[in-house]
Design a protein around this nucleic acid. Structure first.
Lengths: 140, 140
DNA sequence: GGAAATCCGATTAAAAAAGTCGGGATTCCG
DNA sequence: CGGAATCCCGACTTTTTTAATCGGATTTCC
C-alpha cells in the first residue's frame, strides 16, 4: 500500500507556495528542487491549478501562486487533486464491478477504512505543515 | 491510492476460513470462488501461513485452517501479511532515502497519516466482518 | 503406489506510475 | 516589434509494480 510520488510532490509544491505566499509568482524552476523533475512537477501543478488550489500567471515573470487559505486547505484537497480520490479497490467504489456488492462483507470493511483515511486527511491542514519545525528554507 | 487485490483476496480467504472454522481443512478449491485465480490465491495463503494466521495440512484431505481467534485478528494483521506494511512513500519509512529526513514537514505529515491508517486497521477485527449481514454463504 | 493436496521458485503478461519530449500560447521588457 | 521567459498540454517512452501462470517437488491419505 503506497501513495505515489505524485502526492509527495504535490505536497512539496503546496508547501513551497504557501511558504512563499505574497512574494509574487513562483516559477517551476524555483519550486522544483533536487530530485523533483521539473516537467513532471509541471503536470502536477496543472492538477493543482485545475482543482483551484493554485493560480498561475503566464508569460515572462509568470509563475505559480497559492490560491487558497492554508488554514482551510486539507491534505485531502491536495491528494485528491493530484492523485484522484482514494479507492482501496474497485469493489468498494464502483457499484457494478462485483455481483456481491451490497452484501459483501469485504466491501463493507473497505468502505470503513476509506472513510477513515479521508477523515484523517481532512483533519490535517496545510498550515499544520507550515507550523512544523523545519531546519532551513532548503527543506521546502 | 489503491490497495492491491492481494489485500482483497487475503480478506476473502480469512473470512472464508473463519466462517468454516472447525470444519476441518479447507482446500484451495473450496476457498477460491469465481474471479479469484486459484494459483494466485495459493501465493497469498502462503503469506498468511508464514505470518501465522492460517495453518495447513499437507497431502490428500489436507487444506487450510484459520490459526487465530477472529476476535483478536485485525485487518492490519491480514493486510500486513499479504501486502507488507503500508508505506506511503519511501521518505516516510526508510531513514536514508532522503537528505531531509528528520526535519522535512512532508515526512512528518506522511508519518501521521500512516499511523492513523494503521490504527484504524487495528480497530477492525475479523469478527466484525463475520457479524456483518450477508445474504448467503455464496457471498464468502 | 497412486491420487489429492500443499509448497515454491521462476517466468510471463498486463497495468500503472514516473518521467520525457516537442511544440504551442502568453506576456513582459527593452 | 521581437525575443526571452514562462506556463500549457497532449503524446510518448521507460520503468516499476502487480497480477497471473507454469512446472515440478513434496507430503499424506487410502
Amino acid at each position: 500500500m503506497k501513495l505515489s510520488t505524485r502526492g509527495k510532490y504535490g505536497l512539496y509544491a503546496m508547501y513551497y507556495l504557501a511558504a512563499h505566499a505574497g512574494e509574487g509568482p513562483q516559477t517551476l524552476q524555483n519550486i522544483s528542487t533536487v530530485g523533483v523533475p521539473k516537467q513532471y512537477l509541471e503536470q502536477i501543478l496543472g492538477n493543482l491549478r485545475r482543482a483551484g488550489l493554485v493560480s498561475t500567471v503566464r508569460g515572462a515573470q509568470g509563475g505559480y501562486q497559492i490560491a487558497t487559505d492554508p488554514q482551510e486547505t486539507s491534505l485531502r484537497d491536495i491528494i485528491d487533486a493530484v492523485e484522484g480520490p482514494i479507492e482501496l479497490s474497485e469493489c468498494a467504489s464502483s457499484e457494478h464491478s462485483c455481483q456481491r456488492s451490497g452484501t459483501c462483507p469485504v466491501r463493507w470493511v473497505w468502505q470503513r477504512v476509506t472513510d477513515s483515511i479521508n477523515q484523517e486527511l481532512e483533519k490535517i491542514k496545510l498550515v499544520d505543515m507550515l507550523n512544523q519545525p523545519c531546519e532551513s528554507e532548503e527543506n521546502l
